[in-house]
Amino acid sequence: MNRRSFLTTTAATAVAATAGLPLRAAEPMKVGFIYVGPVGDMGWSFQHDQARQAAEKALGGKVKTTYMESVPEGPDAERALTQLALQGNQLIFATSFGYMDAVVNVAKKFPKVKFEHATGYKRADNLGTYDARFYEGRAIQGYLAGKMTKSNKIGYIGSFPIPECVQGINSAFVAARKVNPDVEIKVVWAYTWFDPAKEADAAAALIAEGCDVIMQHTDSTAPQAKAQEAGNVYTFGQASDMSAFAPKPRIGSTIDNWTPYYTKRFTDAVEGKWASDATWGGIASGMVEIGEITSAVPDDVKAGALELKDKIAKGYHPFTGPLNKQDGSVWLKDGETPDDGVIAGMNFYVEGIKAELPK
């Protein structure tokens, strides 16, 4: 700004103040999001979008957010992130694991823009990561499944065979086996995060194999609808409560609560305190919540599930030895727990799971 324009601006400000006119407020910081599914999926993308809205409201006009939904992983994600950066968004959230390479590439092109990637592990000075310990919530589901199954067969719909999903399968199975040594777990991979038709087919296949409890790491309510058609098959809400689509019988849900995190990161960015970080929250931090456990569950079973939840919040690890890998080799000795690096890279099933893990 040259001296003349500086003086002109200063004079205009002084006149406005003297005349009692309102000064122009600072422009709100622009924050962008991309979602892998529609915001109405009632699961993963829905929860992120609810948190986006809540965090924007909490900042009271200091932040203006925008989002793009149903953005496929791959080149489309890179184009969407580039578009958000060119639109002037100063903080951008990429909310699916498969966005990782895209967000890394775009972050390099826009070094002054701050980026965050959900469930990823690649970072840079302007790129942070955040994740939730979903496997803690899966342990609660596994406990309930082990107690509620009558066929001793639990079904699990996986999205992709990545560590995040493998953690959940192992955690659910370990918890179920502790309360029901006869339980089996059967896995069907849908190879999608959100596809109601594929998810319904996966649920139907598991039910046909005799599974009377179905878990899912996919985002639509289709598996729950398929379970209701079959009758006497229990399900859980995924990522959100899904209570509006609550089929009977229904046990409960795990809930991803991103609101406190987004509120904090918005605030950090507005106040100039944002820095690249790696966050991995769980039940203790409130990032993973356990929804209402329904009346379909006996009181003593509900009490046991809530006791396990409290234990995890106080430091108990769902993966506490002795535990072996699927091939029988020792993974964790008695009382031993894994470090975060081992969990983050989990690429094996625990002993007792008969399914083959895709490579």
Rank of each mutant, 00 (worst) to 15 (best):
P38K: 11
Q90D: 01
I185M: 14
Q87R: 14
Y130V: 08
V36Y: 07
R265A: 00
L357H: 06
N152W: 00
N126E: 09
K311N: 10
P196L: 05
G315W: 11
I283W: 06
T65L: 01
G60Q: 13
K178R: 12
V213N: 01
G352L: 12
D76V: 07
W280H: 15
A208E: 11
S5R: 15
A208D: 13
T8S: 15
T320C: 07
L206M: 02
M29P: 03
D310T: 01
K354W: 09
Q224Y: 06
M1N: 12
E307L: 11
G341C: 09
I283H: 00
I34Y: 05
R4N: 13
N126S: 14
V36E: 02
S243E: 14
Q87V: 05
K311V: 05
L7Q: 15
W189A: 10
F93G: 07
T221C: 10
R265D: 07
V104D: 12
A107P: 06
K359N: 14
E351H: 14
Q228L: 08
A227R: 00
D300Q: 10
Q83N: 13
Y35A: 06
G315R: 08
A355K: 06
A313E: 07
D334I: 07
F93T: 02
G291A: 01
Q326T: 11
D201W: 05
A278M: 10
Q87M: 14
G335H: 06
T8D: 11
A118L: 09
G137S: 03
A58E: 08
Y316T: 01
V15E: 03
E184F: 10
A355M: 12
R250D: 12
D219S: 01
S285R: 03
D340S: 08
